[in-house]
Design a binder for these strands. Sequence first.
DNA 1: CGGTATTCCTATCGACTTAGTGGGAATATA
DNA 2: TATATTCCCACTAAGTCGATAGGAATACCG
Lengths: 154, 154
Amino acid sequence: MFSVPTRTQYGIRALVHLAKAEAVGRARLEKSGVPFAAAQGPVAFTATSAEIARAESISPKYLEGILTQLKAKGIVVAERGKNGGFRLARDPGEIRMLDVVEALEGEVRPVDCVEDSGCCAQGVACMPRRFWIGLKETIDGYLSSRTLRDVIDA
Amino acid sequence: MFSVPTRTQYGIRALVHLAKAEAVGRARLEKSGVPFAAAQGPVAFTATSAEIARAESISPKYLEGILTQLKAKGIVVAERGKNGGFRLARDPGEIRMLDVVEALEGEVRPVDCVEDSGCCAQGVACMPRRFWIGLKETIDGYLSSRTLRDVIDA
DNA sequence: CGGTATTCCTATCGACTTAGTGGGAATATA
DNA sequence: TATATTCCCACTAAGTCGATAGGAATACCG
Protein backbone atom coordinates (compact mmCIF):
# COMPACT_ATOMS: atom_id res chain seq x y z
CA MET A 1 0.00 0.00 0.00
CA PHE A 2 1.07 3.53 -0.83
CA SER A 3 4.04 2.24 -2.74
CA VAL A 4 6.14 4.91 -4.39
CA PRO A 5 6.91 4.35 -8.10
CA THR A 6 10.53 3.91 -9.13
CA ARG A 7 10.12 7.15 -11.10
CA THR A 8 9.98 9.08 -7.83
CA GLN A 9 12.65 7.05 -6.10
CA TYR A 10 15.00 7.54 -9.03
CA GLY A 11 14.24 11.24 -9.15
CA ILE A 12 15.13 11.70 -5.51
CA ARG A 13 18.32 9.70 -5.83
CA ALA A 14 19.29 11.86 -8.79
CA LEU A 15 18.74 14.99 -6.73
CA VAL A 16 20.85 13.59 -3.92
CA HIS A 17 23.55 12.83 -6.46
CA LEU A 18 23.43 16.41 -7.77
CA ALA A 19 23.72 17.77 -4.26
CA LYS A 20 26.77 15.63 -3.70
CA ALA A 21 28.26 16.72 -7.03
CA GLU A 22 27.86 20.30 -5.86
CA ALA A 23 29.60 19.64 -2.55
CA VAL A 24 32.44 17.78 -4.23
CA GLY A 25 32.86 20.51 -6.85
CA ARG A 26 33.08 23.24 -4.24
CA ALA A 27 35.56 21.30 -2.17
CA ARG A 28 37.82 20.81 -5.18
CA LEU A 29 37.61 24.50 -5.93
CA GLU A 30 38.54 25.52 -2.41
CA LYS A 31 41.42 23.06 -2.37
CA SER A 32 42.93 24.60 -5.51
CA GLY A 33 43.01 27.92 -3.73
CA VAL A 34 40.02 29.50 -5.45
CA PRO A 35 37.34 30.33 -2.88
CA PHE A 36 33.80 29.60 -4.00
CA ALA A 37 32.04 32.76 -5.06
CA ALA A 38 28.39 32.93 -4.24
CA ALA A 39 28.13 35.24 -7.21
CA GLN A 40 28.08 32.14 -9.38
CA GLY A 41 24.69 31.44 -7.95
CA PRO A 42 23.75 29.14 -5.12
CA VAL A 43 24.47 26.03 -7.20
CA ALA A 44 27.14 25.90 -9.84
CA PHE A 45 28.17 22.33 -10.61
CA THR A 46 26.45 19.99 -13.01
CA ALA A 47 26.32 16.28 -13.66
CA THR A 48 25.10 14.66 -16.85
CA SER A 49 22.14 12.38 -16.97
CA ALA A 50 24.29 9.49 -18.19
CA GLU A 51 26.76 10.03 -15.37
CA ILE A 52 24.08 9.89 -12.70
CA ALA A 53 22.50 6.85 -14.34
CA ARG A 54 25.80 5.01 -14.24
CA ALA A 55 26.57 5.90 -10.64
CA GLU A 56 23.08 4.96 -9.50
CA SER A 57 22.47 1.97 -11.77
CA ILE A 58 19.38 3.53 -13.28
CA SER A 59 18.27 3.00 -16.88
CA PRO A 60 19.87 5.99 -18.69
CA LYS A 61 17.02 6.78 -21.04
CA TYR A 62 14.47 6.46 -18.30
CA LEU A 63 16.34 8.79 -16.00
CA GLU A 64 16.65 11.30 -18.82
CA GLY A 65 12.88 11.68 -18.90
CA ILE A 66 12.69 12.00 -15.15
CA LEU A 67 15.24 14.81 -15.07
CA THR A 68 13.42 16.61 -17.86
CA GLN A 69 10.30 16.42 -15.73
CA LEU A 70 12.12 17.88 -12.72
CA LYS A 71 13.42 20.64 -14.94
CA ALA A 72 9.94 21.51 -16.17
CA LYS A 73 8.94 22.14 -12.54
CA GLY A 74 11.96 24.29 -11.83
CA ILE A 75 13.65 21.89 -9.44
CA VAL A 76 16.73 21.38 -11.57
CA VAL A 77 18.26 23.47 -14.35
CA ALA A 78 19.41 21.92 -17.60
CA GLU A 79 22.28 23.04 -19.79
CA ARG A 80 22.23 21.62 -23.29
CA GLY A 81 25.05 20.91 -25.66
CA LYS A 82 28.57 19.77 -24.98
CA ASN A 83 29.69 20.06 -21.36
CA GLY A 84 26.04 20.42 -20.47
CA GLY A 85 24.18 18.60 -17.75
CA PHE A 86 21.85 19.20 -14.84
CA ARG A 87 22.26 21.08 -11.61
CA LEU A 88 19.99 21.89 -8.69
CA ALA A 89 17.94 25.04 -9.26
CA ARG A 90 18.55 26.13 -5.66
CA ASP A 91 20.11 25.09 -2.40
CA PRO A 92 19.06 21.62 -1.13
CA GLY A 93 17.60 23.26 1.97
CA GLU A 94 15.25 25.20 -0.27
CA ILE A 95 13.90 22.19 -2.14
CA ARG A 96 10.78 20.85 -0.45
CA MET A 97 10.19 17.14 -0.89
CA LEU A 98 6.51 17.82 -1.47
CA ASP A 99 7.42 19.78 -4.58
CA VAL A 100 9.64 16.96 -5.78
CA VAL A 101 6.94 14.36 -5.31
CA GLU A 102 4.29 16.53 -6.94
CA ALA A 103 6.60 17.26 -9.86
CA LEU A 104 6.95 13.56 -10.56
CA GLU A 105 3.53 12.22 -9.69
CA GLY A 106 1.09 15.06 -9.33
CA GLU A 107 -0.79 16.16 -6.26
CA VAL A 108 -1.29 13.89 -3.27
CA ARG A 109 -4.89 12.81 -3.67
CA PRO A 110 -5.99 9.62 -1.89
CA VAL A 111 -9.44 9.79 -3.48
CA ASP A 112 -10.90 12.05 -6.16
CA CYS A 113 -13.50 13.08 -3.67
CA VAL A 114 -10.97 15.11 -1.70
CA GLU A 115 -11.29 18.22 -3.80
CA ASP A 116 -14.41 17.48 -5.79
CA SER A 117 -17.01 17.83 -3.05
CA GLY A 118 -19.88 17.29 -5.46
CA CYS A 119 -18.93 13.73 -6.25
CA CYS A 120 -20.94 11.99 -3.58
CA ALA A 121 -24.34 11.15 -4.87
CA GLN A 122 -25.68 8.08 -3.15
CA GLY A 123 -25.14 5.86 -0.15
CA VAL A 124 -22.52 6.67 2.45
CA ALA A 125 -19.99 7.47 -0.26
CA CYS A 126 -18.97 10.72 1.30
CA MET A 127 -18.89 9.84 4.96
CA PRO A 128 -15.25 8.85 4.72
CA ARG A 129 -14.40 12.10 2.96
CA ARG A 130 -13.10 13.90 6.04
CA PHE A 131 -11.04 10.83 6.80
CA TRP A 132 -9.34 10.94 3.41
CA ILE A 133 -8.80 14.67 3.59
CA GLY A 134 -7.13 14.16 6.94
CA LEU A 135 -4.85 11.57 5.40
CA LYS A 136 -3.91 13.90 2.57
CA GLU A 137 -3.11 16.67 5.03
CA THR A 138 -1.00 14.32 7.10
CA ILE A 139 1.04 13.20 4.11
CA ASP A 140 1.35 16.73 2.72
CA GLY A 141 2.46 17.92 6.12
CA TYR A 142 5.24 15.39 6.33
CA LEU A 143 6.45 15.98 2.79
CA SER A 144 6.40 19.75 2.99
CA SER A 145 8.27 19.83 6.27
CA ARG A 146 11.26 18.02 4.75
CA THR A 147 13.76 19.35 2.27
CA LEU A 148 16.33 17.64 0.13
CA ARG A 149 18.85 18.61 2.80
CA ASP A 150 16.97 16.59 5.41
CA VAL A 151 17.04 13.58 3.11
CA ILE A 152 20.79 13.87 2.69
CA ASP A 153 21.50 14.43 6.36
CA ALA A 154 19.20 11.69 7.61
CA MET B 1 -0.12 10.31 -5.99
CA PHE B 2 -0.95 7.98 -3.14
CA SER B 3 -4.31 7.26 -4.64
CA VAL B 4 -6.38 4.72 -2.77
CA PRO B 5 -7.82 1.89 -4.91
CA THR B 6 -11.58 1.56 -5.14
CA ARG B 7 -11.17 -1.78 -3.39
CA THR B 8 -10.31 0.05 -0.18
CA GLN B 9 -12.85 2.80 -0.67
CA TYR B 10 -15.58 0.25 -1.26
CA GLY B 11 -14.49 -1.78 1.73
CA ILE B 12 -14.72 1.20 4.04
CA ARG B 13 -18.10 2.23 2.70
CA ALA B 14 -19.33 -1.29 3.29
CA LEU B 15 -18.13 -1.14 6.89
CA VAL B 16 -19.89 2.18 7.39
CA HIS B 17 -23.03 0.61 5.97
CA LEU B 18 -22.76 -2.31 8.38
CA ALA B 19 -22.33 0.06 11.31
CA LYS B 20 -25.45 1.90 10.26
CA ALA B 21 -27.36 -1.38 9.85
CA GLU B 22 -26.40 -2.20 13.42
CA ALA B 23 -27.64 1.12 14.74
CA VAL B 24 -30.87 0.88 12.82
CA GLY B 25 -31.43 -2.70 13.98
CA ARG B 26 -30.96 -1.83 17.62
CA ALA B 27 -33.25 1.16 17.38
CA ARG B 28 -36.00 -0.98 15.89
CA LEU B 29 -35.54 -3.51 18.65
CA GLU B 30 -35.77 -0.90 21.38
CA LYS B 31 -38.86 0.61 19.79
CA SER B 32 -40.67 -2.73 19.81
CA GLY B 33 -40.16 -2.86 23.57
CA VAL B 34 -37.36 -5.40 23.59
CA PRO B 35 -34.25 -3.84 25.12
CA PHE B 36 -31.02 -4.74 23.32
CA ALA B 37 -29.16 -7.38 25.26
CA ALA B 38 -25.42 -7.09 25.19
CA ALA B 39 -25.39 -10.82 25.70
CA GLN B 40 -26.05 -11.13 21.98
CA GLY B 41 -22.54 -9.88 21.48
CA PRO B 42 -21.38 -6.39 20.68
CA VAL B 43 -22.73 -6.55 17.14
CA ALA B 44 -25.81 -8.49 16.20
CA PHE B 45 -27.29 -7.26 12.92
CA THR B 46 -26.24 -8.32 9.47
CA ALA B 47 -26.58 -7.04 5.94
CA THR B 48 -26.08 -9.09 2.80
CA SER B 49 -23.40 -8.33 0.28
CA ALA B 50 -26.02 -7.74 -2.43
CA GLU B 51 -27.92 -5.34 -0.19
CA ILE B 52 -24.85 -3.22 0.51
CA ALA B 53 -23.87 -3.26 -3.15
CA ARG B 54 -27.29 -1.97 -4.13
CA ALA B 55 -27.36 0.78 -1.51
CA GLU B 56 -23.84 1.90 -2.36
CA SER B 57 -23.91 1.38 -6.12
CA ILE B 58 -20.98 -0.98 -6.02
CA SER B 59 -20.52 -3.90 -8.39
CA PRO B 60 -22.08 -6.80 -6.42
CA LYS B 61 -19.63 -9.50 -7.35
CA TYR B 62 -16.68 -7.23 -6.72
CA LEU B 63 -17.92 -6.26 -3.29
CA GLU B 64 -18.45 -9.89 -2.46
CA GLY B 65 -14.73 -10.52 -2.78
CA ILE B 66 -13.89 -7.46 -0.75
CA LEU B 67 -16.11 -8.56 2.12
CA THR B 68 -14.61 -12.03 2.04
CA GLN B 69 -11.20 -10.40 2.37
CA LEU B 70 -12.35 -8.38 5.38
CA LYS B 71 -13.72 -11.54 6.90
CA ALA B 72 -10.41 -13.38 6.47
CA LYS B 73 -8.77 -10.67 8.58
CA GLY B 74 -11.40 -10.84 11.29
CA ILE B 75 -12.90 -7.42 10.67
CA VAL B 76 -16.32 -8.70 9.72
CA VAL B 77 -18.08 -11.97 10.44
CA ALA B 78 -19.91 -13.90 7.72
CA GLU B 79 -22.98 -16.04 8.12
CA ARG B 80 -23.65 -18.34 5.21
CA GLY B 81 -26.86 -19.76 3.93
CA LYS B 82 -30.32 -18.31 3.92
CA ASN B 83 -30.79 -15.24 6.11
CA GLY B 84 -27.02 -14.98 6.18
CA GLY B 85 -24.93 -11.91 5.59
CA PHE B 86 -22.11 -9.94 7.13
CA ARG B 87 -21.79 -8.05 10.38
CA LEU B 88 -18.99 -6.17 12.10
CA ALA B 89 -16.76 -8.42 14.18
CA ARG B 90 -16.66 -5.81 16.96
CA ASP B 91 -17.74 -2.34 17.91
CA PRO B 92 -16.85 0.39 15.34
CA GLY B 93 -14.73 2.10 17.99
CA GLU B 94 -12.60 -1.04 18.20
CA ILE B 95 -11.90 -1.27 14.47
CA ARG B 96 -8.69 0.58 13.60
CA MET B 97 -8.56 1.99 10.10
CA LEU B 98 -4.97 0.79 9.77
CA ASP B 99 -6.19 -2.77 10.12
CA VAL B 100 -8.85 -2.18 7.50
CA VAL B 101 -6.38 -0.74 5.03
CA GLU B 102 -3.84 -3.48 5.66
CA ALA B 103 -6.52 -6.14 5.28
CA LEU B 104 -7.38 -4.85 1.83
CA GLU B 105 -3.99 -3.78 0.51
CA GLY B 106 -1.26 -5.12 2.70
CA GLU B 107 1.20 -3.20 4.80
CA VAL B 108 1.98 0.44 4.18
CA ARG B 109 5.32 0.26 2.42
CA PRO B 110 6.38 3.26 0.34
CA VAL B 111 9.52 1.46 -0.86
CA ASP B 112 10.70 -2.13 -0.42
CA CYS B 113 13.79 -0.76 1.22
CA VAL B 114 11.82 0.17 4.33
CA GLU B 115 12.07 -3.22 5.96
CA ASP B 116 14.72 -4.88 3.88
CA SER B 117 17.78 -2.98 5.08
CA GLY B 118 20.12 -5.09 2.97
CA CYS B 119 18.73 -3.88 -0.32
CA CYS B 120 21.00 -0.92 -0.87
CA ALA B 121 24.04 -1.94 -2.79
CA GLN B 122 25.35 0.96 -4.85
CA GLY B 123 25.13 4.71 -5.21
CA VAL B 124 23.05 6.80 -2.86
CA ALA B 125 20.17 4.32 -3.04
CA CYS B 126 19.73 4.17 0.68
CA MET B 127 20.20 7.76 1.68
CA PRO B 128 16.48 8.41 1.30
CA ARG B 129 15.67 5.37 3.40
CA ARG B 130 15.12 7.25 6.66
CA PHE B 131 12.92 9.64 4.73
CA TRP B 132 10.68 6.84 3.47
CA ILE B 133 10.55 5.18 6.87
CA GLY B 134 9.43 8.50 8.32
CA LEU B 135 6.68 8.69 5.73
CA LYS B 136 5.51 5.19 6.56
CA GLU B 137 5.43 6.00 10.25
CA THR B 138 3.48 9.17 9.58
CA ILE B 139 0.85 7.36 7.53
CA ASP B 140 0.66 4.44 9.94
CA GLY B 141 0.28 6.87 12.81
CA TYR B 142 -2.66 8.59 11.20
CA LEU B 143 -4.39 5.38 10.23
CA SER B 144 -3.92 3.66 13.55
CA SER B 145 -5.22 6.62 15.52
CA ARG B 146 -8.60 6.51 13.73
CA THR B 147 -11.30 3.94 14.12
CA LEU B 148 -14.36 3.20 12.07
CA ARG B 149 -16.29 5.25 14.61
CA ASP B 150 -14.21 8.33 13.80
CA VAL B 151 -14.97 7.87 10.12
CA ILE B 152 -18.68 7.70 10.79
CA ASP B 153 -18.72 10.66 13.16
CA ALA B 154 -16.52 12.88 10.99
C1' DC C 1 -36.29 -33.78 1.89
C1' DG C 2 -36.17 -30.03 -1.59
C1' DG C 3 -36.01 -25.21 -2.74
C1' DT C 4 -33.83 -21.03 -2.03
C1' DA C 5 -30.73 -17.53 -0.53
C1' DT C 6 -26.54 -16.69 0.74
C1' DT C 7 -21.27 -16.90 1.21
C1' DC C 8 -17.20 -18.81 -0.94
C1' DC C 9 -13.77 -20.14 -4.56
C1' DT C 10 -11.40 -19.80 -8.95
C1' DA C 11 -10.70 -18.31 -13.44
C1' DT C 12 -10.87 -14.82 -16.82
C1' DC C 13 -11.04 -10.30 -19.30
C1' DG C 14 -10.21 -5.48 -20.79
C1' DA C 15 -8.34 -1.11 -19.67
C1' DC C 16 -4.93 1.33 -17.73
C1' DT C 17 -0.36 2.32 -15.71
C1' DT C 18 4.44 1.62 -15.22
C1' DA C 19 9.13 0.77 -16.48
C1' DG C 20 11.99 0.74 -19.95
C1' DT C 21 13.71 1.20 -25.10
C1' DG C 22 14.71 3.44 -29.55
C1' DG C 23 15.50 6.89 -32.94
C1' DG C 24 16.48 10.91 -33.87
C1' DA C 25 16.07 16.42 -33.62
C1' DA C 26 17.86 20.57 -31.37
C1' DT C 27 21.63 22.80 -29.22
C1' DA C 28 25.98 24.16 -27.43
C1' DT C 29 31.02 23.65 -27.25
C1' DA C 30 35.50 23.27 -29.14
C1' DT D 1 32.54 20.32 -38.55
C1' DA D 2 32.68 16.77 -35.00
C1' DT D 3 31.01 15.74 -30.63
C1' DA D 4 28.40 15.59 -26.46
C1' DT D 5 24.60 16.64 -24.50
C1' DT D 6 19.43 17.71 -23.56
C1' DC D 7 14.95 17.23 -25.64
C1' DC D 8 10.92 15.07 -27.93
C1' DC D 9 7.93 11.40 -29.68
C1' DA D 10 6.48 6.89 -30.30
C1' DC D 11 6.50 2.22 -28.94
C1' DT D 12 6.59 -2.25 -26.20
C1' DA D 13 6.30 -5.65 -22.34
C1' DA D 14 4.64 -6.63 -18.03
C1' DG D 15 1.94 -5.85 -14.28
C1' DT D 16 -2.21 -4.12 -11.67
C1' DC D 17 -6.99 -2.99 -11.11
C1' DG D 18 -11.81 -3.17 -11.58
C1' DA D 19 -15.13 -6.01 -12.89
C1' DT D 20 -17.53 -10.34 -14.49
C1' DA D 21 -18.87 -15.32 -14.72
C1' DG D 22 -19.97 -19.79 -13.18
C1' DG D 23 -20.62 -22.68 -10.00
C1' DA D 24 -19.65 -25.19 -5.23
C1' DA D 25 -20.64 -25.21 -0.31
C1' DT D 26 -23.71 -24.11 3.25
C1' DA D 27 -27.64 -22.98 6.00
C1' DC D 28 -32.49 -21.97 6.75
C1' DC D 29 -37.47 -23.03 5.97
C1' DG D 30 -41.48 -25.09 4.35
